[in-house]
Nucleic acid binder design. Sequence first.
DNA 1: TCATTTATTATACAATCGATTAATTACAAA
DNA 2: TTTGTAATTAATCGATTGTATAATAAATGA
Lengths: 223, 223
Amino acid sequence: MSRKTFQRLSLDDRRRSLMEATLTCVARHGLHGATVRRITEEAGVTVGLVRHYFGNKDDMIRNAYAYLVGQLTAQASESAKHTVAAPETQLARFLRANMTAPNMSEEKVSLWATFIGRVRHDADFAEIHRDGYREFLNVLETLIEPVLINHQRPHSIAACKRHAIALNGLIDGLWMEGALNSGLYGQDILPDLVIEASERLLGIPSGVLANAQPSQQPQSEVS
Amino acid sequence: MSRKTFQRLSLDDRRRSLMEATLTCVARHGLHGATVRRITEEAGVTVGLVRHYFGNKDDMIRNAYAYLVGQLTAQASESAKHTVAAPETQLARFLRANMTAPNMSEEKVSLWATFIGRVRHDADFAEIHRDGYREFLNVLETLIEPVLINHQRPHSIAACKRHAIALNGLIDGLWMEGALNSGLYGQDILPDLVIEASERLLGIPSGVLANAQPSQQPQSEVS
DNA sequence: TCATTTATTATACAATCGATTAATTACAAA
DNA sequence: TTTGTAATTAATCGATTGTATAATAAATGA
């Protein structure tokens, strides 16, 4: 008899709510199980709003993917910028962050992988992926360069880029397999493992990253 | 008026035909676009055979995933075993194989990623993934150990396993990002890059893998 | 050559999909 | 309080989904 009571949200709030519901459903049921009805139910609204805010389902999913990549790269950038620690500490913190929660979560990896499958056939997905990848590489290069300089390693732009590509591959691969946690080893070994591996990849002395101060002082009194 | 003429295949042939058609459709249209009708049309049969050979669609997809992982690990194992080259050559060949076609293909990466998204919620998918991952790690450990021994590096079981995890992460990450080819760099730089990075990760002298003989003789007359 | 088996086709079915439209109602402005 | 706007609901549409069943024909052995 009575209609559902509802609240009128601002355009940004409602769109974000729908995108987050979309990600939740994709993570929970996969792309083929993320139906308009399930997504809108998750968001607490009715199906008509999809058309109203995104035109159609595909566009809503595209926007949700961009939203996800934005989150992933944002937390990557954030942990890199506007910190005043030593370069070694910054890089070490960045590496550890990618090997621990909340960055390394089964849900995020599942989402990321699920969407990757569409990059081939959808130009919008490809662009979103490329932008996120570029951003991640840039952050890595920025973090790597001063560390290389500090330890008298070659640090040309080309060298930094090459190191960033390798390091990104290492992080991506471990991030994925680690989050899926096949049970072949404990996830807790990954932070130290990626730190040690990065030291070797960059050719800097062992312990430079592992012993970097996790707190704020830029390596005072290292007797 | 007339029915479609058909050929009766053996159980294995028909099942394989349907699994390959499934992979083709998933790669081409994604999981949600790989419908029973499209798959069976791709295989040149009618929809009824899905029930006859797999019971239902989900079981057919599960089998197709296992078939894919089997292919991926088989070509990895194959390039490692029953070769008589030097350990350095074997490892280098394995690394290069994973950074070049046909192993590194956009289609395989897309398929792999698409299915990864289901590992979380489907125990069968999780098991298939875990088995493939374990096999890949085993192959890597087998390849790494003699190389470490040859160059007087620590080569305990634990050390080999640790190296295998790191190397596998590096390979996985570069395999994925490389195959997707975002255009930020050429795919052709990856074979040399992964070789060089692996030398550093293993702590063996530069050039040991890069200059390993790609042909069959096990390093005769080295200067 | 004929009978038997079963792989395969053809068709139908209920359920669910995304999209669309018109009727409501929450909210801000007047 | 009243009015106007548009965000939201509710209901419906045709298309497509996966599954089930019966009819058919290809292969096999006697």
